[in-house]
Nucleic acid binder design. Structure first.
Length: 258
DNA sequence: ATGACAGGCGGGGCCTGA
């Protein structure tokens, strides 16, 4: 069994106590982190290694930053191919060796895309780079898990109040179409493989009592290759973490693969 | 339409997020 989770922690240093407690309680094998908001040297490596994890970081000062934690040996690549001039740290990929086999896992922090046409163009270009890279990875015919904060609300049922998002980059028609193109490669949305429930959310805004009103959206996703989907045994959203003091605005989503 | 919060940076507000 391999338990793989994704979590946008909104600063790993601010969230370290939550992270360590959740690792101990949930015992994931592989964790994809996003928005660590620090350079590699500032990542709390020793504390996490002491909890039993190998650590691979692709950090950045102040913004963005991704990491992969693994109880099993990993070999990592940093950065999404397709634009050598892209300085934002939003992608790290690991080959996890376990049980005499391998599973390939990526931690993804897809651009938000709000804030002007340049930012939205960057989001769409990034999604196309991701599609091309995913297409290449799928040719390997391996168990593959592309996990992260996609900043995409795939369907109206993935928001409590979809009308609030119609002009937002997370829900614009082009954004949703690009996400569907990813799925069309043959990837499986793990949550949608196990439930049609319309109230599965992974993010609640800090403002206006959004969590109290359960005014959330589902934007953190694990997309599985067929080889991984065949092994899918369980999916969970650790929504209770949003009720802690000083929470991230996102909660972990995780899968168990046989 | 704006701002509600939160974090980083850096020592005062400003930028970014979703």
């Amino acid at each position: 069994m391999l338990r793989i989770a994704t979590w946008n922690v909104n600063s790993v240093r601010q969230r370290l106590e939550h992270l360590l407690g959740w690792l101990k309680e949930t015992q994931p094998d592989v964790v994809c982190l996003q928005e660590i908001k620090c350079v590699d040297e500032a990542f709390p490596r020793l504390e996490i290694e002491s909890a039993g994890y190998n650590v691979a970081v692709h950090g950045q000062k102040t913004f963005n930053g991704v990491a992969i934690l693994s109880r099993h040996p990993i070999e990592c690549e940093r950065g999404l191919p397709g634009d050598a001039g892209d300085a934002q740290s939003r992608y790290i990929e690991a080959v996890v060796s376990h049980d005499g086999a391998i599973t390939r896992v990526a931690s993804i922090y897809l651009p938000n895309g709000n804030g002007g046409p340049e930012k939205y163009a960057y989001k769409l270009a990034w999604m196309e780079r991701l599609r091309l890279h995913a297409r290449d990875l799928l040719k390997l015919e391996e168990p593959l898990v592309l996990a992260g904060d996609y900043n995409v609300i795939p369907e109206p049922g993935d928001a409590k109040t979809p009308a609030n998002w119609t002009r937002d980059a997370l829900f614009l028609p082009q954004t949703r179409a690009a996400f569907r193109e990813l799925l069309a490669l043959g990837l499986v949305d793990a949550v949608r493989a196990v439930t049609d429930a319309q109230d599965v959310y992974t993010f609640w805004d800090y403002t206006a009592g959004a969590f109290r009103r359960n005014d959330g959206i589902r934007i953190d996703h694990l997309l599985l290759s067929q080889q991984a989907a065949d092994r899918l045994r369980h999916v969970a959203v650790d929504r209770d973490l949003r009720a802690l003091d000083k929470p991230s605005d996102h909660v972990p989503v995780r899968v168990d693969l046989a």
